[in-house]
């Protein structure tokens, strides 16, 4: 591994964590305004240092381990959730040259790593020795397994059209032709929407946040966690959403491709915009029930994804899509 790869990986991790921290502030501010509230105002100018205050609070708190919990798994699970969420970020190209891990199987690897994030969640749920946590973990597994399928199928559409599994090549293809949501719109837009839905479900966000549905399961897998352990799980969810938005904008919105200026800026801008829309969605909708979620995945998203893959394959054989 070259020095450049090391440095860029660290850079990307720092960028992602910083953006996530301020994404936290941004979400709270945005949610406040959407609810006709003020949002954070006290810590720093317009409450900008609120995430830092939150972090300090979480670090100070005593980590409590339930007596009958599986200590090793209980300790290990939260950092792993964040780690796996961050790993995905290493694969996302932030510029034509700035791709920490520019590998040829980028798309399957991203989806595999996204699926891997499930394991620490199950670990946490199992190790907590809590029925709510266990129910939450079971829901998380069911949901993640179900939504992995449409996620793969919709991610295959840009792969088929661009003819590459390398994320950077897909962006380069979009740079040469069109952004995928723009053209072919009948393939790109539905695939984009389905991808966003499946990604939300993978990241356990409303309206698909049933694994931690706090009105039903208290807090799902994070019920027994305190302090920074809870912080890691919380952070993982945000990183997951952020990285998911980054992947979605890479696959469908042209990634680092922009009319002018540096490519990193465009990537960050698109990601943040998508991130904000997802927040907006979150603060507007109620959650679905577990069985409705499964029905949505298997009855609608999977057939639609299959149809899209088929269409994309046909489209590449037509004179316009060649």
């Amino acid at each position: 591994m070259t020095l450049f790869a090391w440095l860029s990986s660290i850079l990307v991790a720092v960028i992602v964590l910083t953006v996530t921290a301020f994404g936290l502030w941004w979400e709270r501010k945005l949610a406040g305004r959407m609810q006709s509230r003020l949002g954070p105002t006290i810590v720093g100018p317009i409450g900008l240092f609120q995430p830092i205050a939150d972090l300090l609070k979480l670090v100070q708190k005593e980590p409590i381990i339930p007596q009958r919990a599986d200590r090793a798994l209980f300790w290990l699970a939260p950092p792993l959730t964040t780690l796996f969420a961050l790993l995905v970020a290493a694969l996302v190209p932030f510029g034509p040259k700035l791709a920490p891990a520019n590998i040829d199987v980028g798309v399957p690897l991203i989806i595999a790593l996204g699926g891997l994030a499930l394991i620490p969640v199950w670990m946490a749920g199992w190790a907590s020795h809590n029925k709510y946590a266990l129910l939450g973990a079971m829901r998380a597994v069911a949901q993640s397994v179900s939504y992995g399928v449409p996620l793969v199928l919709t991610a295959l559409v840009p792969v088929i059209l661009a003819g590459s599994m390398n994320l950077n090549s897909i962006v380069a293809w979009q740079h040469r032709h069109h952004w995928l949501v723009v053209w072919p719109v009948f393939l790109g837009l539905p695939a984009f929407i389905l991808f966003i839905l499946a990604m939300l479900a993978e990241a356990n966000r409303i309206p698909f946040d049933i694994p931690e549905a706090e009105s039903e399961l208290v807090a799902g897998v994070s019920t027994e966690y305190t302090g920074m352990h809870f912080g890691f799980i919380y952070l993982a969810e945000y990183v997951h959403t952020l990285v998911g938005s980054a992947v979605a904008s890479t696959l469908f919105l042209g990634g680092w491709d922009g009319p002018f200026g540096p490519s990193v800026l465009w990537m960050v801008l698109k990601t943040c915009l998508l991130f904000s829309v997802l927040y907006w969605l979150r603060w507007s909708l109620v959650r679905l029930r577990a069985d409705q979620l499964m029905a949505l995945a298997w009855k609608w998203l999977v057939p639609a994804g299959l149809a899209l893959v088929l269409l994309a394959a046909v489209w590449t054989q037509t004179p316009w899509g060649r």
């Binding site: 949610a31 959407m34 609810q35 409303i206 309206p207 946040d209 549905a213 706090e214 009105s215 979150r282 603060w283 507007s284 909708l285 109620v286 959650r287």
Partner: peptide
């Protein structure tokens, strides 16, 4: 909808 979601709004 949960306290951190549409229900909260």
């Amino acid at each position: 909808g949960g306290a951190l979601g549409g229900g909260g709004s």
